[in-house]
Design a binder for these strands. Sequence first.
DNA 1: GTCGTTAACTTACCGTTGATAAGTTATCTG
DNA 2: CAGATAACTTATCAACGGTAAGTTAACGAC
Lengths: 220, 220
Amino acid sequence: MNAFSTTVTGGRKKRGEGHTRREEILQAAKELFLELGYEATTIRRIADRVGVSAPALYLYFPDKEQMMLALCDQTFGYLIESISEIEASVSDPRERIRRFGEAYLKFSQAHPDEYKLVFLGSNIPEAVRKLGHKMPTDDPTRPGVTGALVFQRLVAIIAEAEASGLKLNYPAETCAELCWMAMHGVASAFILKPEFPWSNRDLLGTGMLDIVMKGILRAD
Amino acid sequence: MNAFSTTVTGGRKKRGEGHTRREEILQAAKELFLELGYEATTIRRIADRVGVSAPALYLYFPDKEQMMLALCDQTFGYLIESISEIEASVSDPRERIRRFGEAYLKFSQAHPDEYKLVFLGSNIPEAVRKLGHKMPTDDPTRPGVTGALVFQRLVAIIAEAEASGLKLNYPAETCAELCWMAMHGVASAFILKPEFPWSNRDLLGTGMLDIVMKGILRAD
DNA sequence: GTCGTTAACTTACCGTTGATAAGTTATCTG
DNA sequence: CAGATAACTTATCAACGGTAAGTTAACGAC
């Protein structure tokens, strides 16, 4: 992992060290997904960057999609982390909701490919599309479920806000859905139409947040 | 166009009739895009359904993406039509904006597959563009720009509202973008996650509209 | 030390993809 | 009938994701 972002590590791994190769593959895949997007990142390109042959990747992942999924969980972990941080450090309910929205938007812009994969259905088959939301009996360790966790946190935050005395203009669940939809609208617009000349991206983010807060919380 | 949704029309076209083949190709492509999505719809599958060889498609379209863009324009046309109707029949500025949002949502729910095709089509643009294979031209007659037309109508409606005395909380363009993003958030959520137990779909639609109107228009 | 086992990896290949080149056929014009 | 050419086909390309089968090297056991 040097400064030139080639991850070639040279020779064959020793007996018990296969997992380090796996991590090298993930690292190279992540770099390439971010550089080129999902489609343009080919198995061969990943293999080249790692310094192994293409089929070698299949010793560690069943297919290309699973590489992306593994990365999704990893990066969504960061989102969940920052949400947890907010929950831990911010006590004011209003501020919590706002900070959630900010974190969500910031994440979507920092990791558009992962966002696309989990929340936009993307081009990846059925398996991934349904995981954005709760599938109660499913294996919680399966890759790709972290998207649903994010939404559940928002529901919890808003429900707690109501419990702490804030008055909502809609049922808590509806408020959470409205909030998520609005922020998702901004996030997906930026991601899906990156070349569109948006008037002012920062203002759109903060503005939407203002609008939603004003819309779901009863005026003081 | 028979009951089995094969569009085979038989033999070779006569001299001046190439354009009818072009329409057959578009029809088949549309069906397949809706059935299978962009990625799974191959040139060969389209050609099979039309009843010609695969390279024949390249007599009418430069590449697969252009077929998609042509379909986008077609679908956007339906939306533009209903917007024009509103502009012609509704004079009150507030009501115009609201009706625009309603029409947009209604359109998305009446033609979910087409909406998905047009607005959620995350098909490659990024991947290809980043590889530098073909940079987007700034030719305004190029297919795929009608989407911007819809948005311009919303900008115009909101700008006219401002001109007629309504006070906006943001620049007109930003208001339009916020409005579109919010409605798109609702529309895409319903379409992308149809199985999610949304608390109340009607309330989410009208509620988001209320929230946006309240957010972009200064309170009376 | 050298053997068997097997993790780690390679070479060769499969079918399919979007797209192109070059040739063929059918229809229209003069 | 004789070009000309629109409409279309066959053959082919490089690149894709993925698989089969073989090779190399590191280990424990004796």
